[in-house]
């Protein structure tokens, strides 16, 4: 059994119905002015599964992700998370549901008025009332998980792009979420750092066993991190399957996207890289 299929098979213990649908997007439509961005999206993500939404820039991937966490309201259609229809939830119910999510934004979205430690500790402080030494210890643990121990006193402006993404990741997993959403986690990073982030996503998937959606336009990242890949084009999901399914698809949009070529970056391995993740294997 391959490492990836092994991961799929063991995923899903813990929450809800093991292997059952956790996130269901049903006939989702969204327009901004005259521009239709989402045009009838249907997508199901099962418990413990990592679904990659792959597609060219501007095809509506990030908009889809923001609907899944309730940051945007659909014009039509439904988003069902663990059996709850998002648009029917009141503010308090939505807040409670969001506490079970972690999200890594494309630009990291760290609060620049806070230190790294305050960023990672904010959800713990706000939702669990954790303070003092306990908070500092938890923050350090989360930072160590992403290979960034000892940086909690720094400001986001003092970090590199890759470090910001890792801090964003530490913040996203601060509350040990059941669902983690990644918006273009490797965009803007050099190939080596992008590879480290890909490895980190996989390590964390194993460690926290969360259901995940990764939005990316990076074929290598999609293949590396995903159990399944949904190819999105012009506001529609064209195909859901493995990378092999995509490669052998007859769909023109899929073939065009794949034809750009997929070559694993030189030196890419699943071993722990310089970020120091070996202890979590």
């Amino acid at each position: 059994m391959t490492e990836k299929s092994d991961r799929s098979a063991t995923a899903g213990s813990g929450r809800g119905t093991a292997g059952g649908p956790v996130i269901e997007v049903r006939d989702l439509w969204k327009s901004f002015g005259d521009q239709e961005v989402l045009r009838g999206i249907n997508l199901t993500v099962k418990d413990g599964e990592t679904m990659v939404v792959l597609g060219p820039s501007g095809c509506g991937k990030s908009v889809l992700l923001k609907h899944v966490i309730g940051l945007m309201k659909p014009d039509r259609g439904a988003i069902v998370v663990e059996g709850k229809e998002l648009t029917e939830l009141d503010e308090l119910e939505l807040k409670e549901l969001r506490m079970r999510f972690g999200m890594v934004f494309q630009g990291a979205a760290l609060f620049d008025s806070m230190t790294v430690g305050e960023n990672v500790g904010l959800p713990l402080k706000e939702h669990r009332g954790t303070i003092g030494d306990e908070l500092a210890d938890l923050v350090e643990t989360k930072l160590r998980m992403v290979g960034l121990a000892g940086v909690s006193h720094l400001r986001p402006s003092e970090l590199s792009g890759g470090m910001k993404k890792r801090v964003a990741l530490a913040r996203a997993i601060a509350l040990d979420p059941d669902i983690v959403l990644y918006d273009e986690p490797t965009t803007g990073l050099d190939p080596i750092m992008a590879e480290q982030i890909n490895q980190l996503i996989r390590m964390l998937q194993r460690k926290i066993n969360a259901t995940s959606i990764v939005v990316t336009h990076d074929l290598h990242s999609a293949n590396f991190t995903g159990d399944k890949i949904a190819l999105m084009h012009e506001g529609k999901i064209k195909l859901v399957g493995t990378m092999d399914d995509l490669r052998h698809s007859d769909n023109e949009a899929v073939r065009t996207f794949i034809a750009r070529g997929y070559t694993p970056p030189p030196g890419s391995t699943v071993d722990a890289g310089p970020v120091g993740l070996a202890e979590f294997d």
Partner: peptide, 13 residues
């Protein structure tokens, strides 16, 4: 810079 979206996504009003 999506910091407000991040706050919302964390369940912080």
């Amino acid at each position: 810079t999506e910091q407000i979206d991040a706050m919302d996504a964390m369940g912080i009003d």
